[in-house]
Design a protein around this nucleic acid. Structure first.
Lengths: 235, 235
DNA sequence: AAAGATTTGTTCGTATGTATG
DNA sequence: TCATACATACGAACAAATCTT
């Protein structure tokens, strides 16, 4: 049954189709999408409808428009699909991750608490070193419920951000709570990050809630101050 | 001559008029504005134009719409200072501020840029030392358009947060953008904060937009890492 | 470099569906 | 119940910027 689909406004349906074309790579960033007139023919709807769909996508930061030229897929529409209101990234062009540890663990009681798990539970623990242009910029310790472990294990080596992989497996996040503070580098952290022990690190603790409001990730990331970059936008 | 005004699209002109009605208190928060049909008569334009003006204002967070009921002016209550979705505070029980400098200035070009002011403009500049339990924890440099200067000057000595005072004078903010990074303390900052030069400070740059989407404040605050505490919650 | 075709931006008019009061 | 008001959707025309020839 596509009863619900029928209920959606036409312009939303069109928008969804256009977004799909971008997501699956049919229309790539920086390239123009078909003109309004072509879309009108293709979907057999009025110009109003097409324009409303495009307008929303512009507002969402997916498309860019300018008079006289077809809309372009915006470069770097990365987070725009994911987290409205926040841009959060490190500095650098060549970002990568090195996995230091990845294991199931029965300790890490603090993490269990953040994940709302009983003390006897097992958690999936991962420690990764994030680098930018080959220079270490952060140490990230992530904790997941063991159920998510297999998915994580497969995606961890390649993906810089794990949530898209989780999303493909039906694990979505609805709420993220981050806590920013500062800490001094331990000897081990200082060695990994190429700094002196005791120097200040920016620490972000993050708890991610799933669609059922249950925590699906708790992570603590310690950044070198120079490499840290964080922008928050609120209304 | 208002030649340029004439050049503005009709829906922008209408939007400006509607915004004026809200700014000068003709339409107060929580109250419905006239229906579309009434506005159509009043300004003698088409429904499309009215709707486009209203749509922009909804997007700017000035109006709220719902089917079957006229648009309402959005409430901008006290919590706008508290910002939904964000908790942001320093540690300590006895918080206070010490004003270091307060002046009009023609320099500070970076600040002018953030305030969308021309390079020849004058800005109101204020530097304050924030303390917790008598211990310095942050240096805050704030920039405002000179128009807001008098209000600021009166409130600055007593108020820890300036926005309530601004709100009482009809200056509301609708959008805040914060950028978190890190910097090393200069000699002067180190002296003020009782730390060593070169030590890491957490820096928050903040741009606050007013009801008409024009910047009303730009500030840069540098915190000692230990005293900093920041929690973000997103959906 | 100039002219013409294409494309988006703006504005009008009209009609129907659907939620509010 | 029922009139009012907003949301969605169609069509048409001209202006202004861009692209192509």
């Amino acid at each position: 049954m596509s009863q619900k689909q029928k209920k959606l406004p036409l312009y939303i349906q069109i928008k969804n189709k256009l977004v799909s074309n971008i997501k699956d790579g049919t229309w790539k960033p920086g390239v123009s999408i078909p003109s309004e007139s072509r879309l009108i023919e293709q979907y057999n709807v009025s110009r109003t409808t097409i324009r409303q769909a495009i307008r929303e996508m512009v507002q969402d930061g997916i498309l860019e428009t300018s008079r006289g030229a077809p809309a372009k897929v915006k470069e770097i529409p990365e987070e725009s699909v994911g987290n409205p209101g926040i841009v959060h990234h490190e500095i650098g062009t060549e970002m990568s991750v090195i996995i230091l540890r990845m294991e199931k663990s029965r300790t890490h009681y603090s993490a269990k608490h953040h994940l709302s798990l009983p003390e006897t539970a097992e958690v999936f623990f991962m420690e990764r070193l994030r680098t930018a242009d080959g220079i270490p910029i952060a140490i990230q310790r992530s904790f997941f419920p063991v159920e998510a472990g297999e998915t994580i294990e497969q995606a961890a080596e390649k993906e810089f951000d794990l949530f898209p992989a989780l999303g493909e497996r039906g694990i979505y996040h609805t709420n993220i709570k981050e806590h920013v503070s500062a800490a001094n580098a331990t000897q081990e952290e200082a060695d990994l990050l190429g700094m002196a022990p005791g120097e200040a690190l920016i620490t972000i603790e993050r708890t991610t809630l799933g669609i059922d409001a249950a925590p699906i990730e708790y992570s603590m990331t310690k950044y070198t101050p120079k490499a840290f970059n964080y922008t928050i936008e609120l209304e």
